[in-house]
Design a binder for these strands. Structure first.
Length: 423
RNA sequence: AGAGGAGUGGCAGAGUGGUCGAAUGCGGCGGUCUUGAAAACCGUUGUACCGCGAGGUACCGGGGGUUCGAAUCCCUCCUCCUCUGCCA
């Protein structure tokens, strides 16, 4: 969430930023925050001085009691009981104000980076790069949902039988291909200096709040009511929350982590005929890279992460394009996001396979993730993450783009991982 | 899951109602000594909020309560350890 001090210091810039996200009452919203914070301060000042007085009297009573002056002690007690009543009200008031302020801040998204274009929807995203040729497929080519049936490598019906729609079963070469990709992605990340993490795939409420899935997006996550836990929608949640309530030593920076996990998304309401096959699932595998950086280094890290994703895509020989998301399409917690899409030649569609974002201090403020600078001051760090990469759509495009009359060619880079060259 | 025990500063560990934000040791940082290092000695060493500052407030696993006053007493939740049960 935003820091109130920054809201005050850079109000104009923040208003402009929020307008880019099509929040028309931005100024009003920020003013409310500033006013609430002022009320918070004055209430706290009043409470603090009352507490101070009460503390002093309590100490006096202690001394009087020790000296045996009971009557005098009883006399001062009238004032403290008055203060006690007062302070109970005041601290309740302060609590309410703080909750209201937090609620307000929770509902204000991150301020977009200056380079983020204005816009309403994904049609306003800015294409900044396109690499690779769109393959021309042979006569009779079919989308991946037909290919997987034909070659019996992924079974949706079996998934429906044992779980439900959106939970496919990977079989034989399909399962092997997926495992190969996971290993390839992990190996490349480790080569690039990321430390491999295997986090839990179920997280508690505090973690949901830390990275911003809660309070507003709980509908996206599967919830285990009995234990009040959530199935992760992305490895970002556990891996970033590793650093919740942490003050890092400068020597521990930069943090570069990679994790492979299944991801679970309820995708409530977004199921329809247009999302067939592997295009959208309730459970899918993803390799995620996460960085924690000093503020002045985070944009360099963002570039580095984008370059890493590009490297993966070109190694797999997939045509891709990079989009800079516009204000209207930007995730709630993100300051800037680049989407990577691969071309799936039989569907004749671009599919999002990675999303690389800088959250600046938006997450770290909630997480209380800081480091000590050379002045020994605590400074909020920047968090970043990106998919490297989401598996199903990569598989979809590999299958579609590399099909011929008799089968499917596996990209060369994967041969040592799959142990086979064709499906 | 049941019974018992325990959660204090970076770590170890005292403190069971009143100058306790917290002894002591280790570690860290600064210094003295030394050619350098070690040892020894001296000093310093949590986080957040408010305040121009002096300073104030809160925090001893989380939340609530008793009391003029709580690390200390009570309730509740969480976590860890030991034993019993179950289990990959």
């Amino acid at each position: 969430m935003l820091q109130v001090n920054n809201v005050i210091a850079e109000k104009d810039r923040y208003v402009t930023g929020l307008k880019k996200r099509n929040i028309s009452n931005a100024e009003e919203l920020l003013n409310e925050v500033i006013q609430l914070d002022e009320l918070r301060k004055s209430t706290q000042q009043e409470l603090d001085s009352n507490l101070s007085e009460a503390n002093n009297i309590a100490k006096q009573i202690g001394t009087l009691m020790k000296e045996g002056k009971r009557d005098e002690a009883e006399k001062v007690k009238t004032r403290t009981s008055e203060l006690k009543r007062l302070n109970k009200d005041l601290s309740e008031k302060l609590n309410d104000i703080q909750n209201e302020l937090t609620q307000k801040l929770y509902n204000i998204p991150n301020i977009p980076n200056d380079s983020v274009p204005a816009g309403n929807s994904d049609s306003d995203n800015e294409e900044i790069k396109k690499v690779g040729d769109i393959p021309t497929l042979p006569e009779g080519s079919v989308p991946h949902w037909d290919l997987i049936k034909k070659h019996d490598i992924i079974d949706f019906d079996l998934g429906i039988k044992i779980t439900g729609a959106g939970f496919p079963v990977y079989k034989g070469k399909g399962a092997r291909l997926q495992r190969a990709l996971v290993n390839f992605f992990l190996d490349e990340a480790v080569k690039a200096g990321y430390a491999e993490i295997q986090p839990p795939i179920v997280v508690n409420e505090a973690s949901g709040y830390g990275t911003g899935q809660l309070p507003d997006k709980e509908g996206q996550m599967y919830h285990i009511g009995e234990e009040n836990l959530f199935l992760i929608p992305t490895a970002e949640v556990p891996i970033t929350n590793l650093y919740r309530d942490v003050i890092l030593d400068e020597k521990e920076l930069p943090v570069k982590n990679v994790g492979f996990t299944p991801c679970f998304r309820r995708e409530a309401g977004s199921w329809g005929a247009h999302v067939r096959g592997l295009n959208r699932l309730h459970q899918f595998d993803k390799v995620e890279i996460v960085q924690v950086r000093k503020p002045e280094e985070s944009y360099q890290a963002l570039e580095e992460m984008c370059a890493h994703v590009e490297h993966l895509l070109s190694s797999l020989n997939l045509p891709y394009r990079i989009l800079r998301l516009c204000g209207g399409d930007l995730g709630f917690t993100s300051a800037i996001t680049f989407d990577f899409e691969v071309y799936s030649a039989a569907q004749e569609k671009w599919l999002e396979v990675s999303s690389v974002s800088n959250f600046e201090t938006y997450q770290s403020n909630r997480l209380k993730l800081r480091y000590k600078d050379d002045q020994k001051k605590s400074v909020l760090l920047h968090t970043l993450n990106g998919s490297a990469m989401a598996l199903p759509r990569i598989i979809a495009s590999i299958l579609e783009n590399n099909q011929d009359e008799t089968g499917i060619n596996i990209p060369e880079i994967l041969h040592s991982y799959t142990g086979f060259r064709r499906i």
